[in-house]
Design a protein around this nucleic acid. Structure first.
Lengths: 191, 191, 191, 191
DNA sequence: CATGAATGAGCGTTCATTCAT
DNA sequence: TATGAATGAACGCTCATTCAT
């Protein structure tokens, strides 16, 4: 695989454009112009627009996973682990709102669907951790006796709505609110 | 006189196509073909693609509102009202999964953003009810002391993830699970 | 040929629309709507849009010819005849500016070209008179020894520019100015 | 780098097509085909059809102005200046009959109207010269005491009719006729 | 005779992708 | 490697015309 600065530039520009304008209003020619390369150059690094999007998404997922895994309180209680993760995700997206907007665009696209399929079949690292927490929590009777994907929905579903409102300016997510909301998510899943 | 069933056919086809492929991968020519009419015919019923989408969305929102308002337990406690509404939304979308997928496409589109703004400013009927429940609940100390939009996120955010998983076949939403999940959402918002 | 009020209504509406918006911005559907008939109805009276335009033009030419022939000073000098005709044309178009605008649209269209060809081959009444005046004038040595079509251009060419400026509001054509301009046209062609 | 000759090819083809068929019967696809390029290629050189038309018109006006200004007899009498200009315009269009037909199409289009407004407000170079001759002529009592736009109509109105007849083959504009006609235009405006 | 819903070719324009340089 | 001019299929939309009622 080719690796240069240009590749990173292209991905960065594409991420920002897609986050703000969506996939279909982010033509390759615009991505190229903003990245300071010729249109044809993108095709040296990515086979197609689809391939660029896929690479972008994988990249983003990796970054988010890294953030979450960093300082992960391995030795703490399930509750602590959950609160940490929930907070970490929220704060990550507050730091990188474009990443959130991008992932939202992605999640409902055809790519997003098949991506999600893979996820729930339990391949990626992030999911390993989550399933681990949630499965363990259910087993130990700490969490409600629900399918993992339902627990997942209760735990992280609200974050998506919250982030959207925050980014659109409908809601101010300060430290206190984050704490309350995170705790509320815990209330939803704990037995 | 305009025959309403051709108009309905077009809307129905458009809804299904957009739900499955998104706005940009549902060209007017395809909608026309699937609806069994010529491309130009759509424009007798809808001024533009935007107008079609708007009509479609309004229509769907009305149907969902009707469903929710139907048998609404006006005299019951806030908890009962909430559980009823949560269940009603879930069941509606389980009956009409395409409507869910459509609304998801819509929610992140530019139309969806401004629509959401209106919602939070409290114009539509459905929202009046919701804000009414939530505001009252917070005032009475039954719900957590959080901004309405945060309560909203905790209450309905999980449904979106749940529905997606259900539709994709990752999760079977039977009566018992619905009940548990709905209760869990209540746990998230109740004081 | 079918003859009713509707036919006249359609022609009237078409004339006004075309004068103001041009041929291509005057769709049959609009003509129909403004004339208070259904789109298909126009085709009872005119085989096609082209046929409508042709009929409209012939009709207009007839009206102009009638106006000019009316009160034509048959017994007067060539100069008087010419001044009369020049004034009559100018005044007709000042009364019916839409007719002028229509004819201008028409004159440069493909229809207009072939129409003009017929004209100069000397079939229509108006032309008979004009050619008569001009040919006689040249023969008698009253007018310059130029080809008839050149005399024609000198005599009536200015009127077109004048009318355009008048209608667009660039020039006020009052009685005195009309008199001066008409006289100037005579200066151009007289020996 | 943009190759100027493709741009020139497109303009040339567009000019010829529009001159012969009018704006609305000269689709971009046809212009492209005749210019030997793909439809999309035109849009590398012109932002839109309107932009192409604008460029074409400006280009033509510049060429005509250059022709007229070239060898302009600055030191001569008003009469000489006028005769020179009149002849120059006539000869230019005889050399480039398509340019005449194009300008005629243009003059009655919406673009043409606003263009004419600008002209009469005296912005363009050509008009500066003309207004200069005509205003000076009227002031000095050499020309008839008429509004400038009326003088303009008398001076150049005949040329339009003349050119049309010449191009359509109804009139042979040889040197002698040009001289006579030009002199006749002077007779129309001189006191 | 009149209607107006329906047609579908054609319009101006966009954009992912290719390829000669 | 990098370029960017060129491509052409596809898009949203218009409108002259037809035809079942």
């Amino acid at each position: 695989m080719i690796k240069t600065d240009k590749r990173a530039d292209i991905m960065d520009v594409a991420l920002n454009l897609i986050a703000e304008r969506g996939f279909h209003d982010s033509p390759m020619s615009l991505i190229a112009r903003e990245a300071g390369v010729a249109a044809g150059t993108i095709y040296r690094y990515f086979e197609s627009k689809d391939a660029l999007i896929l690479a972008l998404t994988r990249n983003l997922e990796d970054r988010i996973n890294e953030t979450v895994q960093d300082e992960y309180p391995a030795g703490e209680s399930i509750r602590e682990k959950f609160l940490y993760m929930n907070r970490a995700i929220l704060k990550y997206f507050m730091s990188y709102p474009r990443h959130f907007l991008y992932m939202e665009q992605f999640s409902i696209s055809p790519y997003g669907i098949s991506n999600r399929k893979e996820k729930l079949l339990g391949k990626s690292d992030r999911n390993k951790i989550m399933i681990d927490i949630f499965e363990r929590g259910v087993e130990q009777g700490i969490l409600k006796a629900l399918p993992i994907s339902a627990i997942f929905a209760l735990a992280f579903g609200p974050l998506q709505t919250l982030m959207r409102d925050h980014i659109l300016g409908f809601l101010r997510l300060d430290e206190a609110t984050i704490e309350q909301v995170t705790q509320a998510c815990w209330d939803a899943i704990k037995k």
